[in-house]
Amino acid sequence: MTTRAATLDAPVPIRRPASLWRDAWHRLVQNRAAVVSLAYIVLLLLIAVFANVVAPFPFQQQDLDNTDLGPGAGHLFGTDGLGRDELSRLIYGSRISLAVALVDVLIVLVVGVPLGLAAGFFGRWVDVLVMRTVDVLLAFPNLLLVIVVITYLRAVLDQPQGPLLGIIGSLDGITGGLLGVFIALGLVSWLTVARLVRGQVLSLKEKEFIEAARMTGAANGRIIFRHLLPNTLAPVIVAATFGIPGAIATEAGLSFLGLGVRPPLPSWGILIAEGVRNMRAFPHELLFPAVVLAVTLICFNFLGDGLRDALDPKLKVD
């Protein structure tokens, strides 16, 4: 009795997490690909935040005498069909796209992972409820819901009544009309991860170390957070990084339907969608946003890989 109290009490929660994170950070900085990727992402975040300082032109400034210019001295990445500077639009677009990516990852972590853990660990009605909801949402025509909400919202927002609508309206305003995108993401982006985590937990639950933890009388919460969560990290990280292109594409699709960001505000998705239309006449209009998006995603992936390796409790043994 006393020994168990000793091992489970005071020293454990204080010392171990500190060393876990320190070790992880140590391993992360040793991974060159991850470090370069991290640097790129930090730079990108800075560019997004200081877009108004970094961008050579305002994103909406047109020049109808210089439309569809190829890359050159005046415009490094060329101009679009209205003579707007592509580089500046990419820089401002990073704000929208990174915001969308961030929200997507947040939803994955805050909604998808806990629900998956709960479904896998508690089983029975929790499992049924969560997993049938996933089935329903996967088949559900989410696009319609977004159309309904956005159309009514915009109609109502013309004459905002009451505090709630006012808040929603200002949210939509602040985000440049991204509310529909967030709703769509909220409905779908956590589904994959929830199923994935549940699958992992189902398999982990029966393993010796969980049994052992149970034998020692560990509480459910402790088993979940100390033992199950770290072991589901690998697929979660992959899912989170892979959710990002999906989220950016969702934003592009919805903006295209008039349910997303309000023009002339750019986003990477919009730039790519417009670029595809012009790709044969003006390839640079597709090339630059597509390459920037690809590079960003690759960096997110390498960083994800690095994080996975760094946080993997088993690698520490080696």
Binding site: G258, P263, P264
Partner: peptide, 27 residues
């Protein structure tokens, strides 16, 4: 494209701002 261009043209020719309100086609 017309909406975006007109917004820019009126801004530079007259100094006025208009708000673009895109809608899904059937809506």
């Amino acid at each position: 494209a017309i909406a975006e261009a007109v917004q820019g043209i009126w801004k530079s020719n007259l100094g006025i701002d208009i708000v673009l309100e895109p809608m899904e086609d059937k809506a």
